[in-house]
Amino acid sequence: MDVTPFIVLSAILFTIGCVGVLTRRNAIVVFMCVELMLNASNLALVTFSRANGNLEGQIAAFFVMVVAAAEVVVGLAIIMTIFRTRRSASVDDASLLKY
């Protein structure tokens, strides 16, 4: 089995997510980009699992999904709270915790 297309796709998705996190200001979008990167890595894990003929990569992918679900719950709650207090979902506005 040729893993190249899958890995290329995974890399493209990861790069999109990465650039999104670094450039976008809207917290929701940044959050979605983080999810994109997680899923890109999931894709890579599943691909290699398939290529190697064992289940370890798939188990890891499940773990990532569970953690991502938990993270979404906490993350969205934080974003909601920030939005309620500051009337803004921009990550650059929430920069009080600094030197």
Binding site: L22, V91, A94, S95, L96, K98, Y99
Partner: peptide
């Protein structure tokens, strides 16, 4: 060095990357 802690999440993310 302290100035690096500027509070912008995206700059932290860049450092992470």
């Amino acid at each position: 060095f302290r100035l690096a802690q500027n509070g912008f999440v995206r700059s932290y993310a860049l450092a992470l990357l």
